[in-house]
Design a protein around this nucleic acid. Structure first.
Lengths: 120, 120
DNA sequence: CCTTTACATTGATGGTTGTCAATGTACAAA
DNA sequence: TTTGTACATTGACAACCATCAATGTAAAGG
């Protein structure tokens, strides 16, 4: 049975899954996948966007332009990056796109940063 | 008494400190500081480097060039980025630079990703 | 002193990314 | 069908970043 480690790719979506940083050395592929998720988090506009979405059950794209003070194409770009990282999911209802966070993905990403055994 | 939120800057070092994403909307400054830390994590070489350092009590810079297959200036660049993000700390002893992870910082960064109340 | 070793810094280069104007698409109301 | 709205896509530009060769610095051994 193959070891599953740090990150898997399921259905074309990158999904963080397992081992903390210190548990075993990250492979090239694992590191690339994890880095792309952290890359999605490495932008102030996307962090505030994620914060806005996490504060409600669902948020419409149209409700993000105002607080974030960015153009509509820029908002669309950032929601796409967060969604491709598996951090949010969206559903189109009528003319509106409704976004919600994916808590399991956030928790799994957080888990990567866990340091199991503090060294003396 | 000033609210302390998500991130503080202490002694010229950015230090994540408090509130999870969904607790309150991130300010511009908080988002910028947090994004810079995630930026340090958004590189596969740095993630593998962090993983190597976290696996031991201390690791010499000279022990990183081999596994990471990068030039010495590149290794030096990446250790600097991780250190400026507060994720590792270094000490020079003799000719060698010894690095160790900062578990508290890793945990605080992980805490930012925490989603407190899962929405229905 | 001189040489060697471990690491930092500089400068240059190619690749990536955030931003927005312009345009395209899909849906709903009139 | 025509108009308006919400969002996606494209294309272009500027800013940023990873990488390494060359060079600098500092410490240890001779």
């Amino acid at each position: 049975m193959p070891r599953t480690n740090a990150l898997d790719v399921i259905d074309d979506t990158v999904v963080a899954c397992c081992s903390p940083l210190s548990e075993s050395t990250l492979s090239d592929a694992e590191a690339r996948d994890a880095a792309s998720i952290f890359g999605a988090l490495a932008d102030p506009v996307r962090l505030r966007m994620l914060s806005l979405i996490a504060a409600e059950p669902e948020v419409c794209s149209c409700a993000l332009e105002g607080p974030l003070e960015k153009s509509q194409p820029t908002i669309s770009h950032h929601t796409r990056v967060l969604a491709e990282a598996g951090l949010i999911e969206g559903e189109k209802r009528g003319r509106w796109m409704w976004w919600h966070v994916v808590p399991s993905q956030l928790n799994q990403v957080a888990r990567i940063l866990t340091v199991t055994s503090p060294h003396p």
